[in-house]
Design a protein around this nucleic acid. Structure first.
Length: 110
DNA sequence: TCTGCGGCGTGAG
DNA sequence: ACTCACGCCGCAG
């Protein structure tokens, strides 16, 4: 079951609606919430997945405004270059550390 | 190979 | 109502 990663994405939906977020935000956060452990996706990939292939920039902004950093693994979202990018919940070092813990080996820092 | 710029969506000034 | 900045990406020079 895919819900193993995010114990009840439906619950997330409810919370997002309560936070008064926009559809764009909800789609991004919800999609990121469904990313399996040990896997990473680029902002571009997420943008395309939600139907906004050119709004990768807005995707980053959406994750930045992430109201549920615990339920939503925004750290699994990295740049298209393979770099980690920024992380408002601890910094790039924390992001890389978490990914490493999940089994993802970040590319050699450039 | 590296640098600079435009563009998407949202929040704040 | 308008402008600017941001956890980015792709392209042109």
């Amino acid at each position: 079951m895919a819900s193993s990663d995010c114990k009840g994405s439906d619950r997330i939906k409810r919370m997002l609606g309560k936070y008064g977020l926009t559809d764009f935000q909800k789609r991004v956060l919800l999609f990121v919430c469904t990313i399996p452990k040990g896997k990473t996706m680029s902002y571009k990939e997420v943008a395309v997945a939600i139907g906004h292939p050119n709004s990768y920039r807005a995707v980053g902004t959406a994750l930045k405004e992430n109201p549920l950093p615990i339920l939503i693994p925004c750290h699994r979202v990295i740049r298209a270059d393979g770099k980690l990018g920024e992380y408002s919940n601890g910094g790039t070092d924390a992001k890389r550390r978490i990914l490493k813990e999940e089994g993802y080996i970040g590319k050699p820092a450039a």
